[in-house]
C-alpha cells in the first residue's frame, strides 16, 4: 500500500509542481494517473519510490517513509518503476545481464539471480533474446526488457511512467498485455499515461490538473464527464465520444459503455427493437 499525505513538491525555489496531493493506492489496485503534459503526473510517480522527496507532506510505502534513508532500498525493491524512454533505462550490454542488474544491487546470491533472470525474461516473453545486445532490439522489446529488469527485483507494486508513450502500436500492445498479466497475478499497477484508451484497463483513475488531483473515480465515472476532461486538455476514447453524441439525442446508452464492442451491442439493441 502506498499513502501520500498532503504531498507538495517544487523544483528548487520555484512554485509547486504538485500541491497537497493526498492519495492511497491499495494493494492489488490497477490505478491510472492521467493529465496533460505538465500536469504533475510524472512528479507524483517519482514520489512513489522516493526518487523525489516531498517538499512538504509524507509518502509511506507499506508503512515505510520514503524520506527515511534507511528504508529507501526496501522501498525501491518493493516499488518497481518503468520509464518512458526504453533506451535510457537499460544499463548493460547484454539482455540477460541487464535483467540481473537489480538483483545484483540487492545482494541476491548468484544462483538465485539466475533463477530470477530466467523467470523475469519468461514473464515478458524475451527469453529468446537473452543473449542479444539491447541496442539491436525494437522499442517494444527494449521496454519489455526494462519491465523484466524491474520484475527480477520481485516488487509488489509496479509504476509505469508513460511507458508506452514512445512505442509503436505493436510495442504498446505487448506492454499493455504484460501489465494486464501482472495485475492478474496480483501485482499493484500504477500507470501514468496520456492515452485515454489505456485508462480503460484500470479500475481507478486519477486525473491530474495544474498539480492537483482534479478527478478520482472508476473509468465509467471519469468518462461521464467528457467536457470536463476536454477542458483539462484531455480527450475521451472514441466509443465514449460517439456514445455521448447518441445520448444527446436520447439514445440512452448507459455510462458503463466504454468500449467499441459494448457500444456496438447497445446500438444493436436499440436499432433492432
Amino acid at each position: 500500500m502506498i499513502e501520500l499525505i498532503s504531498v507538495s513538491y517544487g523544483y528548487n525555489d520555484s512554485e509547486d509542481v504538485i500541491s497537497d496531493i493526498s492519495l492511497t493506492i491499495n494493494d492489488g489496485e490497477f490505478l491510472a494517473i492521467v493529465g496533460h503534459n505538465g500536469s504533475g503526473k510524472s512528479t507524483v510517480a517519482k514520489h512513489l519510490n522516493g526518487l523525489l522527496l516531498p517538499r512538504s507532506g509524507q509518502v509511506y510505502v507499506n508503512g515505510l517513509l520514503t524520506s527515511d534513508e534507511e528504508s529507501i532500498l526496501t522501498i525501491r525493491q518493493n516499488v518497481g518503476m518503468v520509464f518512458q524512454n526504453p533506451d535510457n533505462q537499460i544499463v548493460t550490454t547484454v539482455v540477460e545481464e541487464d535483467v540481473g542488474f537489480g538483483p545484483e544491487n540487492l545482494g541476491i546470491e548468484t544462483p538465485k539471480i539466475w533463477e530470477r533472470v530466467d523467470e523475469a525474461l519468461e514473464l515478458v516473453g524475451m527469453t529468446e533474446f537473452r543473449k542479444r545486445a539491447p541496442h539491436m532490439l525494437s522499442g517494444g522489446q527494449k521496454q519489455r526488457l526494462a519491465i523484466a529488469g524491474v520484475l527480477a527485483m520481485h516488487p509488489s507494486i509496479i509504476v509505469f511512467d508513460e511507458a508506452t508513450a514512445m512505442l509503436d502500436p505493436k510495442g504498446r500492445e505487448d506492454v499493455i498485455a504484460i501489465m494486464k498479466d501482472l495485475h492478474a497475478a496480483g501485482k499493484t499497477i500504477v500507470m501514468i499515461t496520456q492515452h485515454m484508451e489505456e485508462v480503460l484497463l484500470s479500475d481507478r483513475v486519477i486525473v491530474m490538473n495544474a498539480g492537483r488531483i482534479a478527478m478520482d473515480g472508476t473509468p465509467t465515472q471519469i468518462f461521464e464527464n467528457a467536457d470536463k476532461l476536454r477542458s483539462m486538455g484531455l480527450d475521451v476514447p472514441l466509443p465514449v465520444a460517439i456514445r455521448d453524441k447518441l445520448n444527446a439525442s436520447g439514445m440512452n446508452i448507459p455510462a458503463s459503455v466504454l468500449t467499441l464492442d459494448s457500444l456496438a451491442d447497445e446500438i444493436e439493441k436499440r436499432l433492432s427493437r
Binding site: F83, E97, G102, N105, E109, A146, V150
Partner: peptide, 20 residues
Amino acid sequence: ELAMAMESRCYHGGEGRTKM
C-alpha cells in the same frame, strides 16, 4: 534518466553488491 532508472533498481554503488 539513466541515473533515475538505476536508482529505481536499487543501485547504490559497489557495496553489498553480488555478481551474476
